[in-house]
């Protein structure tokens, strides 16, 4: 039998060096790798969390921030259930690039994808360049959720992914309750973009 009930794809995007890989590793492996090198292409991690007693598997695609990999990373947006757009609160340029990222999301991701704006490196308060309010305001403008995290101090990291898992599960459940064409097959269809994640929930498999 399957060891999870739902499977969601989460994709991290954002400029190079904002700490995407560190966030993922903190969450999946519980460690903070100092001197993490630049990601090449796309990295893949998996983590199962529990939401209301249901096992939810998160497939996390950690993309390279470097522009040269844009071609391959863009192709991963589309099947994502959730996007995490990361910037560095101590680095103004990474914040300034956000509009470009929003454009990318609009172009390549499915329209109703759940998007989180994350200001990372919140431990480096002394070097902060972007006040939390500005980030929050920006997120609101583009109908994104906002969080500040610190991969180093493990601050808000778990919360970030758990919130995503909870939200996506909620969506999936709503969607599952609504009569859908493919609900007979027992697959859990996501409302967004026809991507078909799937946990098997078929009764015939319950033997």
């Amino acid at each position: 039998m399957e060891d999870y009930k739902y499977l969601f794809k989460v994709v991290l995007i954002g400029n190079a060096g904002v700490g995407k890989t560190c966030l993922v590793r903190r969450f999946t492996q519980g460690l903070f790798p100092p001197g993490q090198g630049a990601t090449i292409g796309v990295d893949f991690m998996i983590k199962t969390v529990e939401v209301d007693g249901d096992k939810v598997k998160l497939q996390i695609w950690d993309t390279a921030g470097q522009e040269r990999f844009r071609c391959i990373t863009q192709s991963y947006y589309r099947s994502a259930n959730a996007l995490i757009l990361v910037y560095d609160i101590t680095c103004q340029p990474t914040f300034d690039c956000l509009p470009n990222w929003i454009k990318e999301i609009d172009t390549y991701a499915s329209s109703k994808v759940l998007t989180y704006l994350v200001g990372n490196k919140s431990d480096r308060l002394l070097h902060r360049e972007i006040p939390a309010e500005i980030g929050e305001h920006f997120a609101k403008q583009h109908s994104m959720r906002y969080l500040e995290t610190s991969a180093k101090e493990a601050e808000n990291v778990d919360r970030l992914f758990t919130e995503i898992a909870v939200e996506l599960t909620k969506q999936a459940k709503e969607n599952f309750l609504r009569p859908r064409q493919d609900s007979t097959s027992g697959k859990v269809g996501m409302p967004n973009g026809g991507s078909s994640p799937v946990g098997g929930l078929s009764c015939c498999k319950l033997n």
Binding site: G37, I40, V42, A64, I72, S196
Partner: peptide, 17 residues
């Protein structure tokens, strides 16, 4: 049958570091 995951994963493996 869907090969979505396989395509994604294999592609990601090609970039392994």
């Amino acid at each position: 049958r869907s090969y979505d995951f396989f395509v994604s994963k294999f592609s990601s493996m090609c970039h392994s570091s």
